[in-house]
Nucleic acid binder design. Structure first.
Length: 685
DNA sequence: AGTCCCCTAAACACAC
DNA sequence: CGTGTGTTTAGGGGAC
């Protein structure tokens, strides 16, 4: 039943989009419109947004089918990496190192569900940023290794083929071979270039140390030295912490990212190299050379082996022919994989695969860097507890997402291959984790709730993600509505504005109209915590924090350990878990970190008096320019006392009668609350 | 097993 | 009449 309905909504999504568009247009007319309509210029905005979204990131495939195929293949491989990663995490072998790294809870959630069953996205959704970070590190390391191996294999493969061909060539009329050989050598050359390019990239990113000789030497040397896992932690360190202070502060805050990062990685190794080089790449060309730590043993070929031969079968892509021994294999190789068009084509494909992986790697690296940068920065930001709101026992969810799931991330839906993934395969709602796995149906947040991750921070962190990826947010409607309302200066929204907030903040809601709107209305009516206030211009909805909190406590009580663990990550000395959670929940801590959100998004989330906030209706122009990020951490930083804040805003309307006069402060012209109302920070003070 | 909570669907009333 | 808003009821599922 639910499944059906769910799929229905999904199916209807594309067309529904228009619905949203028109709706938002109207909405703006209705809500904002009444308030001196001019302000909004809404229609346009709505249209713009929609088109942006609707423009189906779905993108088209590259013209060449081949390319498409290759991309698929590459993605496949990348996916495998991720899965390997996952299984590695939970594999008994790694357990030790993992346990020693108990600082991070990564494995807990992951290990519980057989990783093989998870898609990379799902995994990411389950993990918290720090966890993800750790995971990513491993992933990166692994990918790099894989890439290196690829290169190696390929080169050997090519080399071998070349040799074979040359041998064969002796017996054949040379003319016949001439062309092919030429082409083949060209490919070899390409391979080399590719490889060097890749290494350069890696080098640039500081992920790989490379000896000059290696870099320059064409064929012969293989980039075996490439990445030594043990170096990674160092690199991370170097990366994120330009200056010591940053790092120090990190530790002081009790959120020792570097530490966790190091330990969380399955290859925990004593930090060795330590040049805290400036994390930026070296413009002067000075490579971040780390002593190439090559374990000679790792990939040495045993005498009787062949790179294309393993486990008794031919490793030529798509071959897998069984060969009893090396001799037989060689024979097979010479016959089946001789230098012909097919082999050449396969080679080409393989090159593409490698190329894709490179790209992927580059992306991932970039992302990782951004994440690292962000995470390192965060601790130095104003404490997570800030907002005046009262303690809200964990409201919503956990969701771990962060980036990646939809590669669309940073740059929107720019990349054909990746972006296609988002719309086509509805990503799993972040945070749903295991629960959602079983039930294909609607994801219920229970799971997330227990982690008591604050919705606001969660949202803040993944704001861009939800905005762009067609992922169902792991929050309950109630918490989302509340969030929407609280984000506005005067803590009240019309239904329409709520709708708009939903569509603005979540790509998901841009697609499925009917159901969620109904749900929103339903929630508004159903929950006591949402209070309808008659306004001159209509009705607005407000949040009664007390009520809202009333219904939560029971939930939070569950799984104290998890909660604790989660929180300990952010530890604030003495505050108890739930209290912290509450604080976090009600605050918008991360919004203040300049690094992480672009001005646009930040502004859209800022809870306090703010032009932007007042005009939630305004869908788009978003990009930053609109409002000077008014970051005043101190502003948020206290008021832990429950009374204050709700007293201010909510209290009034709470009592029985729906409050005749809408809002105390705005007794005057009600309609303009969007505009004039914005007495900055008024409610706080 | 019972209870909560959440979600979706749908019917209905009202106002514009 | 169509649409948007609100309210209510019903039923299913997950978590505790």
């Amino acid at each position: 039943m639910m499944v059906e309905s769910a799929s229905e909504t999904i199916r209807s999504a594309p067309s529904g989009q228009n619905g949203v568009g028109s709706l938002s247009g109207q909405a703006d007319g209705g809500g904002g419109g009444s308030s001196g309509g001019g302000a909004a210029g809404p229609a346009a905005g709505g249209a713009g947004r929609d088109s942006a979204v609707g423009a189906d990131s779905n993108g088209e495939m590259s013209p060449a089918e081949l390319l498409h195929f290759q991309q698929q293949q590459a993605l496949q491989v990348a996916r495998q990496f991720l899965l390997q990663q996952a299984s590695g995490l939970s594999s008994p072998g790694n357990n030790d190192s993992k346990q020693s790294a108990s600082a991070v809870q990564v494995p807990v959630s992951v290990a519980m569900m057989s990783p093989q069953m998870l898609t990379p996205q799902q995994m990411q959704q389950i993990l918290s940023p720090p966890q993800l970070q750790a995971l990513l590190q491993q992933q990166q390391a692994l990918m790099i290794q894989q890439l290196q191996e690829y290169y190696k294999k390929q080169q050997e493969q090519l080399h071998l083929q070349l040799l074979t061909q040359q041998q064969a060539g002796k017996q054949q009329p040379k003319e016949a071979l001439g062309n092919k050989q030429l082409a083949f050598q060209q490919q070899l050359l390409q391979m080399q270039q590719l490889q060097q390019q890749h290494l350069l990239n890696l080098q640039r990113q500081g992920l790989v140390s490379l000896q000059p000789s290696q870099a320059s030497g064409p064929l012969q040397t293989l980039p075996q030295a490439a990445v030594c896992p043990t170096d990674l932690p160092q690199l991370w360190k170097g990366e994120g912490a330009p200056g010591q202070p940053a790092e120090d502060s990190v530790k002081q805050e009790g959120l020792d990212l570097t530490g966790t990062a190091t330990t969380a990685t399955s290859f925990a190794a004593p930090p060795k190299v330590s040049p805290p080089l400036s994390h930026h790449t070296l413009p002067n060309g000075q490579p971040t050379v780390l002593t190439p730590r090559r374990d000679s043993s790792s990939h040495e070929e045993t005498p009787g082996s062949h790179p294309l031969y393993g486990h008794g079968e031919c490793k030529w892509p798509g071959c897998e022919t069984l060969c009893e021994d090396l001799g037989q294999f060689i024979k097979h190789l010479n016959t089946e994989h001789a230098l012909d068009d097919r082999s050449t084509a396969q080679c080409r494909v393989q090159m593409q695969v490698v190329q894709q992986l490179e790209i992927q790697l580059a992306k991932e690296s970039e992302r990782l860097q951004a994440m690292m940068t962000h995470l390192h920065m965060r601790p130095s930001e104003p404490k997570p507890f800030s907002q005046p709101l009262n303690p809200v026992p964990g409201s919503s969810s956990f969701s771990k997402v962060t980036v990646s799931a939809a590669d669309s991330f940073p740059d929107g839906l720019a990349h054909p291959p990746t972006s296609a993934a988002a719309p086509v395969t509805p990503l799993r709602p972040p945070g749903l984790g295991s629960a959602s796995l079983h039930s294909g149906g609607p994801a219920r947040r229970r799971s997330s709730d227990k982690f008591c991750s604050p919705i606001s921070s969660e949202l803040a962190q993944n704001h861009e993600f939800y905005k762009n990826a067609d992922v169902r947010p792991p929050f309950t409607y109630a918490s989302l509505i509340r969030q929407a309302i609280l984000e506005t200066p005067d803590r009240q929204l019309t239904l329409n504005e709520i709708y708009n907030w939903f569509t603005r903040m979540f790509a998901y809601f841009r697609r499925n109209t009917a159901t969620w709107k109904n749900a929103v209305r339903h929630n508004l009516s159903l929950h006591k915590c949402f209070v309808r206030v008659e306004n001159v211009k209509g009705a607005v909805w407000t949040v009664d924090e007390r009520e809202y909190q009333k219904r939560r406590p029971p939930k939070m009580t569950g799984s104290p350990t998890l909660v604790k663990n989660m929180i300990s990550g952010l530890s604030y000395g003495t505050l108890n878990a739930s209290y912290q959670a509450a604080l976090a929940e009600s605050s918008f801590p991360l919004l203040n970190s300049p690094g992480m959100l672009n001005p646009g998004s930040a502004s859209s989330l800022l809870p306090l008096g703010h032009d932007d906030a007042g005009a939630p209706v305004e869908p788009l122009p978003s990009n930053g320019s609109s409002s000077p990020p008014r970051l005043s951490p101190p502003q948020y930083s206290h008021q832990v006392q429950v009374k204050e804040e709700p007293a201010e805003a909510e209290e009034d309307r709470r009592p029985g009668p729906p409050m005749g006069p809408p809002n105390p402060s705005t007794a005057g012209p009600p309609e303009d609350r969007d505009l004039e109302e914005e007495l900055p920070g008024e409610e706080l003070s």
